[in-house]
Structure formats: structure tokens, C-alpha cells
């Protein structure tokens, strides 16, 4: 047992966030290989892209401490959180608009405000 209590708290927090992140990445990989349809796979991949990535980055931020690395990691997190949900959305939209057999995979529902021609 070496190190101050502060260092131990940091280490434990880092480990917890890292494990959460890795678990969600494992979920994402399992989901991507388990599901057969693109929407389910997008959902699974989105878990890894957002929560897994953020947890791993938070763990790295805690272990890096205050400094230039922290800001670089924040920039990486901002960039990834801007881009990966948008790309997921993009793929989902393309699937929705171009798959002619969509209603055999999904239940399409009309929201209350929508008109007849959607």
C-alpha cells in the first residue's frame, strides 16, 4: 500500500470508468454481431460510440489530471460526440428512406401531429 489516499481515489475512479466503458464496448460488439437488421445493429453500435467512448475518455481525463492533456481529451470527446450520433442518424435515415421492405422489419407508426402523406 503505497501512495496517498488521493492517488488511490483517482486510481479507483479511473478503473471504474474504464471498466464501465469496456463493458459497454463489449455490449456494442456483441450486439453488432448478434443482430441481423441494420437498425438493431445501429442501436448496438451507438452504445459503444457514445457511452463506451465517453466512459473511457472520462477515465483517461481523471488519470491525466489537470493540464494540456485534459483539454485535448475534452476536444476529442466533443468531436466524437458531435460526429458519431450524426453518422448513426445518417445511416438510419438512409435505411428508412431507401429500403422498400421497411414495413416487414419495423412497425411504422404515425405520430399524432402527422398528416396522411408522410
Amino acid at each position: 500500500m503505497t501512495g496517498t489516499p488521493m492517488e488511490w481515489i483517482r486510481f479507483v475512479l479511473t478503473a471504474v470508468f474504464m471498466i464501465v466503458g469496456l463493458c459497454s464496448f463489449i455490449c456494442a460488439v456483441l450486439g453488432v454481431f448478434h443482430f441481423g437488421y441494420i437498425m438493431n445493429r445501429l442501436h448496438a453500435a451507438g452504445i459503444g460510440d457514445t457511452m463506451g467512448l465517453m466512459s473511457v475518455l472520462v477515465a483517461l481525463m481523471i488519470s491525466a489530471g489537470f493540464g494540456m492533456d485534459l483539454f485535448k481529451l475534452i476536444a476529442v470527446a466533443a468531436f466524437m460526440w458531435c460526429t458519431s450520433p450524426v453518422s448513426t442518424h445518417f445511416m438510419g435515415q438512409i435505411e428508412y428512406f431507401t429500403n422498400p421492405d421497411l414495413s416487414s422489419y419495423l412497425k411504422l407508426r404515425r405520430r399524432r401531429g402527422d398528416t396522411e402523406e408522410t
Binding site: 422498400p100 414495413s103 416487414s104 411504422l108 407508426r109 404515425r110 405520430r111 408522410t118
Partner: peptide, 25 residues
């Protein structure tokens, strides 16, 4: 993928039977 958890939440929403998609299919 056999049931949808949103079934109960969106109970009042009606299903769309999309005609153009059917013809393309």
C-alpha cells in the same frame, strides 16, 4: 426483436400501412 417495449407507451398511435412502399416491394 419479437416485441417492442414502446408498444404500451405509444398505444394510441395508429400504424401506417404505407402504400408506395408496398408497390415498390
Amino acid at each position: 426483436g419479437r416485441t417492442d417495449v414502446m408498444d404500451r407507451i405509444l398505444d394510441d398511435a395508429s400504424e401506417i400501412h404505407d402504400q408506395p412502399r408496398e408497390t415498390i416491394k
